[in-house]
């Protein structure tokens, strides 16, 4: 059960890293999530999540170029590992399984 631990925010971060593919670093991930999901993301929350995902082995990082707007600090690019992919697939498949198990009637609820 606890094979692949992936929290809700972590999953979003993983997905975003996937979307950005080769361009996923702190600021770009933050902006992507903010623009796609219309929610604010603090640097702290994002960095913690990234570190945790890296520690779990779902993401790997490499140091990128240092630019002037970053005051000479390098970017840290993230990519999904094979293990990370498995975790995402696992999460998705469990969701799908659950979705498909819901009887149609149960979802016939209207906003009233």
């Amino acid at each position: 059960m606890k094979k692949y631990q992936l929290g809700e925010f972590e999953e979003i971060v993983m997905l975003t890293v996937g979307i950005l593919y080769d361009e996923a670093y702190g600021v770009s991930i933050k902006k992507e999530i903010e623009s796609r999901l219309k929610r604010g993301v603090s640097v702290g929350a994002l960095q913690t999540a990234l570190k945790r995902l890296e520690d779990k082995g779902y993401l790997k990082s490499r140091e990128g170029e240092a630019t002037e707007e970053r005051a000479g600090r390098p970017k840290k690019y993230f990519t999904i590992t094979a293990y990370g992919k498995k975790a995402m697939e696992y999460t998705k498949s469990t969701r799908d399984e659950l979705w498909s198990a819901i009887p149609k009637v149960a979802l016939k609820v209207e906003f009233s």
């Binding site: 702190g26 630019t67 970053r70 005051a71 600090r73 970017k75 840290k76």
Partner: peptide
């Protein structure tokens, strides 16, 4: 430190 500080600077 470096990468996060970079992010902060960029922002």
């Amino acid at each position: 430190r470096n990468s996060i500080e970079g992010d902060l600077m960029e922002l």
